[in-house]
Simulated assay, not measured.
Amino acid sequence: MNILSVNIRGMGSKDNADWLRGIKESLGVSVLALQETQFKDLSEFNISMYWGNSSFGSDFVEADGRLGGILCMWDESVFQCTSTNVVMKRNLWESIETVKNNTPGWWVILGDFNSVRFRNERKNSKFNPTSDNNLNNFIFSADVREYSMRGRCFTCYTKKGNKQSKINRILLCNDFFSKWPEACLRALPRLHSDHSPLLLTVVNKCYGPKPFRVFDSWFDREGFKEEVSKAIESFNGEGLPDVLCSKLKHIRGIIKKWRDKTIFKEKEKKKTLQNEMEDLDMIAESIDLNEQELWVYTECKKELEEIGMLANLKQRSRIR
């Protein structure tokens, strides 16, 4: 069972949906909590694009214009929902505490708290002792805890990366800690948000090999059509009992070789760019980035978008 929390800064982008669905499917996420959906009404919005084809439950709190909005989705075979309106009450944390104390069960409280617990959880941004003491008092009174976060020191970054804070958290009841003392909370790399997704992992899972698919984006890739043409021309079906199936199998084998070679090159390039951005993020946690470093960060991000490294994530499979 894994739990993922992220400030999405608007749900309208298909890139965001594909990105988070990819994380959810690859890491076996059972709960997906999105903040700042910026949607007042989700009745006509296809939220399954964030979850995938499997069944799920969901609940949401509408945004105030372009501000706020919460969507929570969960695997119904793992969790059951108890509906409350606590997030609509004026004093949110105290209201959650009251509901928690009056509702038996195991509690996971997560999201963008927009406050930090300690001064060192902010860099180049204003520390508000009153607000942050209120968060600490809530955590103490509600009797919840949090795992040490790995991967990063902060969860929220400005566009230029010069301001950071740890305002996203996953708080859990003591029963959760007793059940999974070795669970791991990790801040994942951010691609389409200024907030890092938080992944809470309690069980390692292996999903086996991926099925073979041909994606729409491949038809525009260099060398694809040529390889398919060569595969058709090189096929010799003489004496085979099922010529059509054998021909398709032959073409698929050629496409796989092209795919593996092409994707390897693209992944290497993408990895290099992302690693450079990650390195700059880590540097920015200690010192301010200089003008050249800020330029490099911007260019890396622009190149990732321009060369279409994420094109396959945005395409539906054409052949299964």
Rank of each mutant, 00 (worst) to 15 (best):
G161K: 06
R145W: 08
G65T: 12
V108F: 05
K123F: 10
C153K: 10
N162L: 13
N53D: 07
W106T: 15
D112Y: 01
K159L: 13
N124H: 10
R169Y: 02
R90S: 11
C153N: 05
A63E: 05
C153V: 04
K126N: 14
C153T: 05
L67A: 15
F79S: 10
S54G: 07
R152P: 00
T130H: 01
I139S: 05
N91R: 06
D59W: 04
D59N: 08
G68M: 07
Y147P: 06
K160R: 12
I170S: 01
S141A: 15
F79A: 12
V99A: 10
W106M: 15
K166H: 10
W107C: 08
C81Q: 06
S58C: 11
V87W: 02
S165A: 14
G111I: 10
V144N: 01
S125R: 09
M149L: 15
C153M: 09
K166N: 07
I70H: 01
L110A: 06
I70G: 04
M88R: 11
F154W: 02
D132R: 09
S125A: 14
R169L: 05
R150D: 04
S141K: 12
N85P: 00
T82H: 10
I109F: 11
Y147T: 04
F140V: 13
N120C: 10
I70A: 07
Q164M: 14
Q164G: 07
Y157R: 04
N101F: 07
V108I: 15
A63M: 08
V78D: 04
S77R: 13
V116W: 02
T130I: 14
S77D: 14
K89D: 07
K160A: 14
R119N: 08
M73R: 01
T103L: 11
T130P: 00
N128S: 12
S54H: 01
T103H: 05
T103Y: 02
R90Q: 07
N114L: 04
E76G: 12
N120T: 09
N102L: 13
Q80R: 13
T158R: 10
N124D: 13
I167T: 12
T158A: 05
I167P: 03
R119G: 01
D143G: 04
I167Y: 02
V87N: 06
T98S: 09
F127Q: 11
G52K: 03
G65L: 12
K123G: 05
T103F: 05
L110M: 14
S95N: 11
D59E: 11
T98E: 14
S55K: 09
D132Q: 11
R117I: 13
L71E: 03
G105D: 12
V99R: 01
R90C: 07
G161C: 09
W74K: 02
N134H: 09
F113C: 12
G151I: 10
D64F: 01
T158W: 00
N136R: 14
G57M: 05
T130E: 09
D75S: 08
G57S: 08
